[in-house]
């Protein structure tokens, strides 16, 4: 279902940062109706937030699958700094099969986390600044001749003052599990979206878009030099009790159909991680990709 919605979104606004979700869309409408919320938020102190957000349970799933190396990488900021900085989660998927994919994802995650504690700014700006740090680190690692030869996706979630902000480059995903349903908060940067747009514009057809051998190729990723796309929703999600946020690499959501993935998300964060692991192992794919998920349960 989500897939269908995303395809529709591509038709409308491939160039836009899209939050093509019923719930998220509702959030946007709610926010739009509230005047001057930007100003209210701007009035908040730069650090040391008044209302301490409860720390979520954190579930971690990080497995190599059937691959020869682990090219996924992730990090979650410590609980004790939540009152000062919020909670930052970063998940990166080094480019499978390409040399140094593990180093690239590690460089990206390290740079993002290392800068988190020393970078000012409102949440959206902060996430984008940290992404710039991550991309700088990858650039330095690869050197100009290394562009386009290895790379990494990156998804990041920042929970601060009861709101969840997220950012994505590449094809990893950020999802919200609420009231038994899974909503995708991020949009992948894959060639299929551009093929769909070509079909809409009459330059190609949808069959090509859905059968093109490179339709899953990444059109934006760390390691390409200048990033082409960054996905960030127009407004954050208001965190409610019972919400679970899921940041994951494609090794998770490619292995599990949406319904099966969703079915793993009841219970504590640790239970979710364990169930996801069991479900993926049960598939027993001979070339199961690295799979990583961080679950934040409120």
């Amino acid at each position: 279902m989500i897939d269908t919605i995303l395809i529709c979104a591509a038709v409308v606004a491939v160039e836009l940062v899209t939050t093509a979700l019923p719930v998220a869309a509702a959030c946007i409408i709610e926010r739009a109706a509230r005047p001057r919320w930007e100003a209210q938020r701007a009035a908040c102190p730069a650090a040391g937030f008044g209302a301490p957000a409860p720390a979520p349970q954190v579930g971690k799933l990080h497995q190599q699958g059937a691959r020869k190396s682990q090219q996924d990488c992730f990090s979650v900021s410590p609980e004790e700094v939540i009152p000062s900085y919020g909670l930052l989660t970063v998940v990166a998927d080094g480019m499978g099969g390409l040399a140094d994919g593990d180093k690239v994802s590690q460089a990206a995650v390290s740079a993002m986390m290392n800068s988190f504690y020393t970078t000012p700014g409102k949440p959206e700006e902060l996430l984008l600044t940290l992404l710039a740090r991550a991309n700088d680190a990858v650039d330095r690692l690869l050197g100009p001749e290394g562009y386009g030869k290895s790379g990494s996706t990156l998804v990041a979630g920042l929970a601060r003052e009861g709101k969840f902000y997220n950012l994505s480059v590449g094809d990893s995903r950020v999802c919200l599990y609420r009231d038994g349903a899974l909503y995708q908060l991020s949009r992948e940067h894959v060639f299929r979206h551009e093929l769909e747009l070509r079909a809409v514009n009459g330059e190609s057809d949808f069959r090509t878009a859905y059968t093109h051998p490179k339709s899953g190729g990444l059109t934006s990723y760390l390691g390409m030099g200048k990033l082409k796309y960054v996905d960030m929703p127009a407004a954050p999600v208001e965190i409610r009790g019972g919400d679970k946020f899921l940041l994951m690499t494609d090794g998770v959501f490619n292995a599990l159909p949406q319904e099966e993935l969703t079915a793993c998300l009841e219970g504590t964060a640790e239970e979710c991680a364990r169930r996801l692991d069991e479900a993926i192992r049960a598939k027993n794919y001979s070339n199961q990709d690295n799979y990583t998920a961080v679950i934040l349960a409120y």
Binding site: A66, D93, M95, G96, G97, L98, G148, G151, T153, D171, V190, F191, R192, E194, L195, H212, K214, S215, G216, G217, L218, T219, Y221, G223, M224, D250, G251, N254, A255, Y285, S286, N287, Q288, D289
Partner: peptide, 13 residues
């Protein structure tokens, strides 16, 4: 099998 291809860079960039 959803992993018949490794993650790829780019479409026709």
């Amino acid at each position: 099998n959803p992993f018949s291809q490794p993650t790829m860079i780019g479409g026709d960039l």
